Amino acid sequence: MASQGTKRSYEQMETDGERQNATEIRASVGKMIDGIGRFYIQMCTELKLSDYEGRLIQNSLTIERMVLSAFDERRNKYLEEHPSAGKDPKKTGGPIYKRVDRKWMRELVLYDKEEIRRIWRQANNGDDATAGLTHMMIWHSNLNDTTYQRTRALVRTGMDPRMCSLMQGSTLPRRSGAAGAAVKGVGTMVMELIRMIKRGINDRNFWRGENGRKTRSAYERMCNILKGKFQTAAQRAMMDQVRESRNPGNAEIEDLIFLARSALILRGSVAHKSCLPACVYGPAVASGYDFEKEGYSLVGIDPFKLLQNSQVYSLIRPNENPAHKSQLVWMACNSAAFEDLRVLSFIRGTKVSPRGKLSTRGVQIASNENMDAMESSTLELRSRYWAIRTRSGGNTNQQRASAGQISVQPAFSVQRNLPFDKPTIMAAFTGNTEGRTSDMRAEIIRMMEGAKPEEMSFQGRGVFELSDERAANPIVPSFDMSNEGSYFFGDNAEEYDN
């Protein structure tokens, strides 16, 4: 993207840094990872977990959730003011799984939030270390993106479920800051804005008074975040219109849905970061690795190297396929839920299948599930090659597409044709070009129609051997075009429920 120079890199967003050079960025990201790792080690000690239990991804998720809940100030305040039966607002906890007599047992633990905050700050040299908290939120978000298709949420806001490739980060909490905003897809931002506008339509006082002023500035800020994701002048001009509207209503909703559809071809720039579970960072720190000293990046080879040398386990339900569970977590670790499966298959070195073909449910185990038949197995999170994460949407291309997802959002900077089903997408653009945004709409449609099938995206960008740390010898991959490109292809993934 041309304006790259004016933006802070995501590592800076990730670490609240002012302008830093590459070495400083690597050190501050490393410091953040160190903090998460030290916190995780301490929690495993508190909970008396064995090494194996500490490497269980379900335990990692519970521990991450506990610290996120302990620092969720708004919710904590709300819980104190609106006490609900049987919930102690000062405590947080969740299921911890232990191996007892050759069987997995679930144990519900409860801790004072104050105590968890103390352990977290102690692991982070006394700081609140917001960057580390956001990092864990993005890992949870990436896992949700890989596990669930947001059909219901899309339909509720009037969008087409086939636009799911635009929904990265749709389950990120509001408090995820600049680093969170960077990884949100165009569809996620559109959905947040539509929800806001709908509230304004239904509630006369939404934009009024002292609160209304705050609401208005939040609305304009979200519009600017979305505008910054678009790469064409016409899309940005249309966002200006939406932002400046005196009284946002149905016309703005129409414009936003139009823009979301246009992003299936004229893709937005959305950041991709490899955020790993805390149970990967903990053992690495415990083994003596100093992330701050060595430096770390979320968008280069580092996460690949770390996963190459990590042992992570997962509980497996009786009829689940461990290899499929591994694929789910591998995609989440690489922030690749909406990437082209052919690119992923090449990088991973084994075939990556669409969601609907995987015999696996989510990673988390519900409290009512029976533990008797639970097994555990090693997650295979290694890769054959590594590639640089991208934040450009890439230019655009036609490809055989599917009944489910009709476009992709690249996660890796790797040369390819970008699949999208042009006739299906263009069919949504018939007729409606009147109104105050008509010239911009016409211009956007013209650009979409001009998108050429034979153009290559990320020209000359390749993948790298894991021994090639400096990215000196790019390998331009070859793809098996007979395979499906979309992950949520004609899909039956479970729906995400809060």
Score class of each variant (00 low, 15 high):
Asp101Met: 07
Gln415Phe: 01
Asn321Gln: 03
Gly209Met: 11
Glu369Asp: 05
Glu449Arg: 08
Glu192Gln: 15
Ala218Trp: 09
Asn211Thr: 15
Asn202Tyr: 03
Ile425Ala: 05
Lys305Trp: 10
Glu465Asn: 10
Ile406Leu: 00
Gln399Gly: 15
Ala153Thr: 03
Val270Trp: 10
Lys90Ile: 01
Gly212Pro: 03
Gln4Thr: 02
Glu292Gly: 14
Asp101Thr: 00
Met191Asp: 10
Asp372Met: 03
Pro354Val: 04
Leu108Lys: 07
Ser486Trp: 10
Leu306Ile: 15
Val408Ser: 01
Ile25Ala: 08
Arg221Pro: 08
Ser457Ile: 02
Arg162Ala: 01
Gly490Met: 11
Gly349Ala: 14
Glu11Ile: 08
Gly212Gln: 06
Arg195Trp: 08
Ala336Thr: 09
Tyr296Lys: 12
Leu379Tyr: 14
Phe489Arg: 10
Pro477His: 05
Met189Leu: 03
Ser217Pro: 14
Asn144Cys: 05
Ser84Gln: 01
Tyr313Pro: 02
Gly200Tyr: 10
Ser69Asn: 05
Ile197Phe: 13
Pro277His: 05
Ile406His: 12
Arg175Gly: 05
Asn250Tyr: 13
Asn125His: 04
Gln58Ile: 07
Arg246Met: 07
Arg384Ile: 14
Ala323Pro: 01
Asp128Arg: 12
Ser478Trp: 01
Ser482Gly: 09
Ile201Glu: 14
Met32Gln: 10
Glu434Trp: 06
Arg348Thr: 02
Lys227His: 11
Ala237Ser: 15
Gly404Asn: 09
Ala178Pro: 13
Asp240Lys: 05
Ala428Met: 06
Ile265Gly: 05
Val109Ile: 08
Asn250Cys: 09
Ser50His: 01
Asp145Glu: 09
Leu379His: 14
Leu193Phe: 05
Arg156Leu: 04
Ala403Lys: 00
Thr171Gln: 14
Lys357Val: 12
Ser9Thr: 02
Arg55Lys: 03
Ser50Pro: 03
Gln149Phe: 11
Met440Asp: 01
Glu244Phe: 08
Thr171Phe: 07
Arg8Phe: 11
Gly295Trp: 10
His272Val: 13
Ile425His: 11
Trp139Thr: 10
Tyr10Cys: 12
Met163Tyr: 15
Tyr487Ile: 07
Asn498Ile: 04
Ile194Pro: 03
Arg342Gln: 03
Gln149Ala: 11
Lys452Glu: 13
Lys91Val: 07
Ile225Leu: 15
Met1Asp: 10
Glu114Ser: 01
Glu469Arg: 03
Ser359Lys: 15
Ala401Val: 05
Glu14Cys: 08
Arg261Thr: 08
Tyr296Ala: 12
Leu259Gly: 14
Asn21Cys: 00
Gly185Leu: 08
Asp34Glu: 02
Ala471Asp: 10
Glu294Pro: 07
Gly393Leu: 04
Arg348Met: 08
Leu307Ala: 06
His135Ala: 05
Lys103Arg: 06
Asp203Gly: 08
Arg118Thr: 12
Gly126Pro: 12
Tyr78Arg: 03
Asp302Thr: 02
Ala179Pro: 06
Tyr385Thr: 14
Asn211Arg: 12
Arg355Gln: 10
Val343Glu: 06
Thr147Cys: 04
Arg208Ala: 06
Lys184Ala: 03
Ser274Tyr: 12
Phe420Glu: 13
Arg246Lys: 00
Ala472Asp: 12
Phe412Cys: 02
Glu454Trp: 01
Thr433Asn: 05
Gly349Gln: 10
Thr151Ala: 04
Ala286Val: 14
Arg389Glu: 04
Ala278Glu: 09
Met196Cys: 04
Met374Ser: 03
Thr92Leu: 04
Lys103Asn: 02
Arg75Ala: 06
Thr130Phe: 03
Arg446Pro: 00
Pro161Gln: 02
Ala401Ser: 05
Gln42Ser: 04
Trp104Cys: 05
Arg156Thr: 02
Met196Ser: 01
Asp72Val: 04
Ser353Met: 09
Val155Ile: 12
Gln4Phe: 00
Ile257Val: 12
Val100Leu: 04
Ser176Glu: 11
Trp120Leu: 14
Ser141Trp: 12
